[in-house]
């Protein structure tokens, strides 16, 4: 009987020591309440990249505690739910799904730029805190990058119980809820996504673009032949931006550049 008690106490002590050395936290998909907002009259698609859907953060705190935070499907669930509340029509796409066949006003692709957290031993307080830096890319109906918005969310929770798992989970959920509030407040302000409503597609597919380039080249050659005795003159041709097949266009535009057929809204980083 004594040996049993001893082994039980030993086991409990080992468990406490093990939790002291680090933790593995797995988040359950959070739910957000139905927001008090008017839906935007847009038809959008949400593309969830696989690294966003299976985000795992590993860190060593002060060189002692090893933490593994598995956000799992929580972010995908959050954005699916949130955009469902924010827009009239939402189509969920997998990482490899082609949005070209859909009749949509915009495509939204979220990602995580950075994940950070602090525990009481670092902050010298009784709280756990989580920061998540998201990036929301908005593409227009032609597949061109229309806006690129980084947003930082923050959640904080008090220490409860013996281990840090529950408060850290709560802090992460609060950070996600903070991101949801920020998206509701500032998505349109920072990305002007509502201006994409019924906007005509300006880009062409990669194949059509190659065809157009060949046509222009032939035309240029014919003109050059006609003007052979004269000084050759270069004709400036503005090509439409590459379509979705060739990947998203990263367009940067200075204030004086006006020869681009499109621009990317660099959203303000909302801290």
């Amino acid at each position: 009987m004594r040996a049993k008690i001893r082994s039980l106490i030993g086991g409990a002590l080992l468990a406490v020591l093990a939790t002291g050395c680090g933790s593995h936290v797995t988040l359950d998909p959070p739910t957000i309440p139905t927001p008090l907002i008017d839906k935007m009259p847009l038809s959008i698609a949400l593309r969830i990249p696989s690294e966003f859907e299976h985000f795992v953060h590993e860190d060593e705190v002060l060189g002692r505690e090893h933490w593994t935070i598995d956000l799992g499907r929580s972010n995908a669930a959050l954005f699916t739910q949130l955009l469902g509340f924010m827009f009239e029509e939402v189509t969920i796409l997998g990482p490899d799904d082609d949005a070209g066949i859909l009749s949509i006003d915009a495509l939204i692709e979220p990602s995580i730029d950075a994940f950070e957290f602090s525990v009481p031993s670092q902050s010298k307080t009784d709280t756990y805190a989580v920061w998540i830096r998201y990036r929301v890319k908005v593409y227009d109906s032609a597949g061109d990058l229309f806006a690129n918005w980084p947003l930082s969310a923050y959640g904080k929770s008090e220490q409860t119980g013996l281990t840090g798992e529950a408060p850290l989970k709560r802090a992460a959920v609060l950070a996600m809820r903070d991101a949801a509030a920020l998206m509701i407040m500032n998505l349109d302000k920072s990305t002007a996504i509502s201006s994409l409503k019924d906007r005509p597609a300006v880009a062409v597919s990669a194949a059509a673009q190659v065809e157009a380039e060949a046509e222009i080249e032939a035309e240029t050659e014919a003109i050059a032949e006609e003007q052979a005795p004269q000084t050759p003159q270069r004709r400036e041709v503005v090509l439409p931006p590459p379509g979705p097949v060739s990947g998203p266009a990263e367009l940067s535009m200075g204030p004086d550049d006006d020869d681009h057929s499109g621009s990317v809204l660099e959203g303000k980083d909302d801290e």
């Binding site: 957000i32 309440p33 927001p35 008090l36 907002i37 809820r177 949801a180 407040m185």
Partner: peptide, 12 residues
């Protein structure tokens, strides 16, 4: 706070 989401969140 839930009934008035997101208008009584720490940020808003």
């Amino acid at each position: 706070v839930d009934s008035l989401f997101p208008w009584f969140e720490p940020r808003t």
